[in-house]
Amino acid sequence: MVGSVADGVERPLDPRSINVQRIAGAITSALIGGVTLIALVVRLIASRPTRGEVVLLLLAWLALVASIGALGWLWPPLSFRHAFWRIDASGMRIRRGVVWRSIVSIPRSRVQHTDVRQGPVERAFGLATLVVHTAGTEHASIALSGVAHDTALAIRDHLIDVQT
């Protein structure tokens, strides 16, 4: 498994990551929606508005939540299409970004240590986030989310392997 990961072939993320991100987006919109709704209701109760005003404000709230929800739904597949990673003998390269595209290249010898993290949603889908730590400043830690747990472990083993 280790050998097959470090073959220099550019791979996309795991497709299940789209759903993981959508869930995260849904949670965020629910939170934002909930908080703004509470704030709205408190304000409405305090100021005794007309029916028209209530309807208007509720519509505005709905529009806000709908747009955030739409963003949370539509963005993940887009960012998925633009994210790739590649490992070979010389190092790791992560290419991602929809509007601002970036390629981050990490030479193998510059990897200080690695973490493999799994949030609850990621665990449910069998995915993980690989965090690579370097001695840099701007890129002191570089995270690659949305890879399968096994793949993350394989990458980590490969990167650590070079230290010995």
Binding site: W100, R101, S102, I103, S105, P107, R110, G136, H139
Partner: peptide, 13 residues
């Protein structure tokens, strides 16, 4: 040198 990063804004592209 630690990490090298190449970036492209839409204008760059």
């Amino acid at each position: 040198v630690q990490v090298v990063a190449v970036g492209q804004s839409p204008f760059d592209r």
